[in-house]
């Protein structure tokens, strides 16, 4: 037997794992696969959770404005406050003047409206917290959606039932594309766009296809439709 090797090399060539660890190596093959899959799944879950997407939890606001009260309760149209939704990219946040159109006469001493009165008196803006916060690399235009028969509630959910505003959908690209690929499943007649109670009829596919043709709705799925 050749014994010219030093003790260090002999140690290196000895067996590291004893035969009793053989089952472990087999188990570890499965375990690694499971862990990788599980880890992926966990990441997916976290990514689609409200923690990341911000969907489904109400935001703190300087004034606890209730869409439920003003829309379902009082019957105000969306456009009474969001005045530019039909003609600009931005739906429009109401000026303090809009609030004061009524609240200079009613609930004039309500503590929760103090910031509104302060804003009116000083001319400083109310600082609302943005609920629907699209990434900076996304171009979105309200007016084209509204004018092509996409209802408010399609994206914003049952706003007339929200005491505090929350985001009803993830606003993820996959969510946008779902409709951009199949608009006929989501469009409604133009005169129903601001109807918060609107339910799609059973023959939506049929009606949708008709509206898509009538309103000349394109299936815009090019990258540059939104990323420009």
């Amino acid at each position: 037997m050749y014994t010219g090797l030093g003790p260090r090399v002999r140690w290196l060539m000895s067996q590291i794992f004893s035969p009793s660890t053989n089952p472990l190596s087999k188990i570890s093959i499965v375990a690694v696969a499971l862990l990788a899959g599980g880890g992926g799944l966990a990441l997916w879950e976290v990514n689609s959770s409200p923690f990341v997407s911000r969907a489904n939890y109400p935001f703190e606001q300087p004034v606890p404005f209730s869409h439920k009260h003003h829309v379902a309760g009082l019957g105000l149209d969306c456009r009474y406050c969001h005045t530019t939704v039909e003609r600009s990219a931005f739906a429009g946040m109401p000026a303090t003047e809009t609030c004061m159109s009524c609240h200079s006469m009613i609930w004039t001493n309500a503590p929760m409206l103090e910031p509104v009165r302060q804003s009116w008196a000083t001319g400083k803006s109310l600082e609302w917290n943005r609920v629907h916060d699209l990434p900076g690399f996304v171009y979105f235009n309200h007016s084209i959606h509204v004018n092509k028969g996409v209802g408010c509630s399609e994206c914003h959910g049952p706003v007339d039932q929200m005491p505090l505003m929350y985001q009803a959908n993830t606003l993820y690209m996959t969510w946008c594309l779902e409709c951009h690929r199949n608009p006929e499943m989501r469009v409604r007649p133009r005169d129903k766009v601001f109807d918060m109670k609107y339910k799609h009829p059973e023959n939506q596919a049929e009606l949708g296809a008709k509206l898509v043709a009538e309103y000349k709705i394109q299936k815009l799925t090019d990258c540059y439709t939104c990323h420009r």
Binding site: F90, S125, E127, P135, G136
Partner: peptide, 21 residues
């Protein structure tokens, strides 16, 4: 960085101008 780009959007707040707009 791409998500929160250093630019103003409509009605954004600004700490540069005295009125905060």
């Amino acid at each position: 960085d791409m998500h929160d780009q250093p630019r103003y959007r409509l009605n954004s707040a600004s700490d540069f101008w005295s009125d905060g707009r």
